[in-house]
Write a protein that binds this DNA or RNA. Structure first.
Lengths: 146, 146
DNA sequence: GGCATATAGTTAGTTATGCAACTAATTTCA
DNA sequence: TGAAATTAGTTGCATAACTAACTATATGCC
């Protein structure tokens, strides 16, 4: 398979420079417009805690595809904003369970609505089959590299 | 169109958290393994200068989808490493033309080869039609948001 | 000509990421 | 049991991102 068959350098530029950045920037902007002070990275952590509360930091690493120092500092900032609390695990004293505060629980519906609106805006004119292909490709890429 | 028709929150996670990050990380690692000291962000700037040398910083903003402060600091670091030089434009004294040094020109073939190999690795099992769909979707997303 | 506006680039402050090195607690296994 | 290896989390350092505010130059228009 020749290297330039798919113009892969170009695809790399597209993946990393353009669409994902544009979506992230728009979502951040929409949060700010709604008066929310959280970053999209913080939101992505909260998103996983809304699905299942009181995860360990390691589990948050796995689910958000971040490394441990990144999660440590995201949790630091979320704790400063009183959106999560670190609670020591009883069964394993190495582990911090990261649990939502009431303030964070109150943000769930609004922020997810904003994220859905943003994705609707971003995906106008894109059909379900195309989205399925994108998801399949990204899963393959991830599997190929890990 | 109902919000959850495409599980868009999930797609957002995929786009931003998983595959693009995995590709970026692998490419950075492959650069390091080859003894190259440049970051992938610096490489993406060089990539556009290899295609057309001596662009203004603003033009680099447009082509790399970065904002002006980001380009300022990327050029600062590339200049420290003696890979580019800022040259004042004669026709417009506000403009810096960013030009490659010989050292940067020497990196072109090797780094592009590494990027192609990385994309081959990432895209194993992905066919051309699927890649075309991904590119189309990302272009639509970008157009929708800008 | 001269003032308002727009454009190119820089700087400051905050957040986030990656890597490497570190501490503390737990598990493995000889 | 106890030393070695593993796992969870933190810290330090460098790079990069966004926003907002700033300087300097150029353009538009009366």
């Amino acid at each position: 398979m020749p290297n330039n068959q798919f113009k892969r350098g170009e695809l790399y530029s597209v993946i990393n420079g353009m669409a994902s950045t544009a979506v992230a920037r728009r979502l951040q902007k929409n949060f700010r417009t709604a008066g929310l002070e959280i970053t999209i990275e913080q939101w992505s952590v909260l998103y996983h805690l809304w699905k299942e509360d009181c995860l360990s930091q390691q589990e948050l690493c796995n689910r958000t595809f971040r490394d441990k120092p990144s999660i440590t500092r995201l949790i630091d900032n979320l704790e400063k904003q009183k959106l999560v609390k670190r609670i020591a695990s009883r069964s394993d004293r190495r582990i911090n369970l990261v649990c939502l505060t009431d303030a964070a629980k109150a943000l769930q519906d609004l922020t997810i609505e904003i994220a859905n609106q943003t994705m609707n805006e971003a995906l106008t004119g894109v059909n379900k089959d195309e989205i399925d292909v994108v998801k399949t490709v990204f899963q393959k890429v991830y599997d190929n590299l890990t």
